[in-house]
């Protein structure tokens, strides 16, 4: 299950969605809006997307994880205007054992970051605004 939403994301239902009597482990990842980026104070941000493709790509990534590991995965990504501390993305992977759950959860968030057509515009405390480009070296090291 994967979806995009302009409404706040609560990770709890995503975790519950992958629960089952035969699944003993659920790994989850929740990405939040951070108050700084590369040393610059961030006030808020806006996510925009190529929505039909983003939905299709999220579904493909979840399907890949579910075929590669014996897991059930849920994924949600927020769009629109977000404030510091808002949930930007949430992933939950449920499996019989923790190894598959952790691996699938990690796979889904890493693939989502590089493949899902979503863009982030950051608004800084100094009044400037910029589109985030994770492929730029300075931003890559700042993000790690």
């Amino acid at each position: 299950m994967a979806y995009l939403t302009t409404l706040p994301i609560d990770a709890a239902p995503l975790v519950r969605a992958v629960e089952a009597p035969d699944r003993g482990g659920i790994a989850s990842f929740v990405g939040l809006v951070r108050n700084q980026h590369g040393g610059r104070a961030v006030l808020r941000l806006e996510y925009s997307a190529y929505a039909p493709m983003a939905e299709a790509e999220c579904a493909r990534i979840v399907a890949e994880a579910e075929s590669r590991w014996p897991v059930r995965v849920s994924l949600a990504h927020r769009l629109g205007a977000l404030e510091i501390g808002d949930v930007a993305v949430a992933v939950a992977a449920g499996a019989a054992h923790r190894d598959a759950a952790f691996a699938a959860c990690r796979y889904v968030i890493e693939e989502a970051k590089t493949r899902v057509p979503i863009w982030k515009k950051e608004f800084y405390a100094d009044g400037t605004v910029s589109w985030v480009d994770p492929t730029r070296a300075a931003e890559r090291s700042a993000a790690s």
């Binding site: 983003a54 990504h77 968030i109 989502a112 970051k113 899902v116 979503i118 480009d133 994770p134």
Partner: peptide, 10 residues
């Protein structure tokens, strides 16, 4: 056809 800037979700 879509031309996609570097993606920045997540």
């Amino acid at each position: 056809i879509a031309i996609l800037p570097p993606m920045a979700g997540g």
